[in-house]
Design a protein around this nucleic acid. Structure first.
Lengths: 222, 222
DNA sequence: CTCTCCATATTTGGATCCAATATTGAAAAT
DNA sequence: ATTTTCAATATTGGATCCAAATATGGAGAG
């Protein structure tokens, strides 16, 4: 028997800590801007500070936390400018990914996309914000992975990670959840017709809605 | 007095190690594919394994080394496909950076670009491969930084890092050094005329030359 | 009452030590 | 001779301990 509470635990402590930290940040348990006390966190997670620090270094590389020598780590805060910049870069990279993916999509790929979309619709109907974020991500990443450019897909993932802390805000609004479902449908239609232009266009709209919404949700200052 | 051999040493051991590792990889002292023995390296650099491992985690995030749990780190090897992918992503991101930078360029920026270009020309004339790589990088990054998109610039830097291990090969060929000088001149001209289209075009050519050259230089296998 | 300075406490950075895993090589069985 | 197994060894992963740097708080001078 190897079942272990919340799914089986990764083979190393740093990977376990890494996953835990990601969840803590994306769910908002660790707020943007909050300093990270290594000693307290390590004790809470039942590990020493060494694997914790290595996990933090990984997160630093992904832009989820910031680091200053002798001052420590903080959960990264995104200014409005940062947010816009991240979304603009996503626009560039995701367009490339979609254009490469469209002619390569197989039946199996469409099955996966439909399955992901079903998850999205279920989560939207249930009003489950966390499940919504997870399923939505799966839908998009499934598509991007079809581009056959692993490094590009990895980059896009990292960019998504960067804004994860703010994404749950977006899905908090019920209207947004319904809209996302519709926009995904439109994207899927375009993909089935092998129209890269339309797929890119629908995804751009999709993204712009998120940016606009987040801009109004974010505090004026950061 | 605080002079310290090769420039003053960073405030933390991990930063020192990080810089040393970057040099070792870009200069080829650590060959692509080579496994990294932590104990030996730590002793060579006169630090313990802890800061070394944190530096390696950073490099892993940048794609300069690969990591497998319980197997350790290796200097990353780029396949031809990887190389082409990195350059394609650079093309997308650098175009954006240039288009944003062009209308924002100030006299001071042009001074910096000219200064960098002088360094390039000096290095090219002297046949100094390492200086050539450094100056070339400075030239491009100076331009990209003018876009006013710090995250975009950081991403581009990371992509450059990824291929640094192979760049010195490129400058080893004398003809390439001269061509680079000319291509930079063409780019500068386009920038002075505030022609984003032409600047992008010259840089695309510039990059394509590098790809083509590297494709022929790289071994068939990896 | 405010500001400066210094002692104290907290926190991060790094070294050493031990444990867990993977690799290697030799002996034994087929 | 070849393959399998198992023990010995090398290497990575993690915990604890100590040092260095920074943040905190109070005493004293203005």
């Amino acid at each position: 028997m190897s079942s272990d509470g919340a799914g089986r635990r990764p083979p190393t402590a740093q990977q376990f800590v890494l996953a835990e930290l990601r969840r803590a940040i994306t769910t908002g348990r660790l707020r943007p801007g909050a300093p990270i006390r290594q000693d307290a966190l390590a004790e809470e997670l039942q590990v020493s500070r060494v694997p914790l620090r290595e996990a933090l270094k990984t997160l630093e590389g992904e832009g989820l936390v910031t680091y200053k020598a002798h001052k420590g780590y903080c959960v990264a805060t995104l200014s409005l400018d940062d947010l816009r910049e991240v979304y603009r870069i996503r626009e560039l990279l995701e367009e490339e990914a979609v254009r490469r993916a469209v002619p390569r999509l197989t039946d199996a790929d469409f099955d996966r996309l439909e399955a992901a979309q079903s998850d999205v619709e279920r989560a939207a109907a249930a009003g489950d914000v966390l499940a919504m974020a997870t399923a939505n991500r799966l839908f998009h990443m499934t598509l991007f992975d079809c581009a056959g450019m692993p490094r590009l897909a990895r980059l896009i993932r990292t960019l998504w990670d960067t804004t994860d802390a703010y994404r749950s805000m977006y899905y908090g609004e019920g209207g947004n959840r319904e809209r996302v479902v519709k926009e995904h449908r439109a994207t899927l239609d375009a993909l089935r017709r092998r129209s890269a232009d339309e797929a890119v266009a629908t995804l751009d709209v999709h993204r712009d809605h998120a940016v606009t919404e987040l801009e109004s949700l974010l505090p004026a200052s950061p």
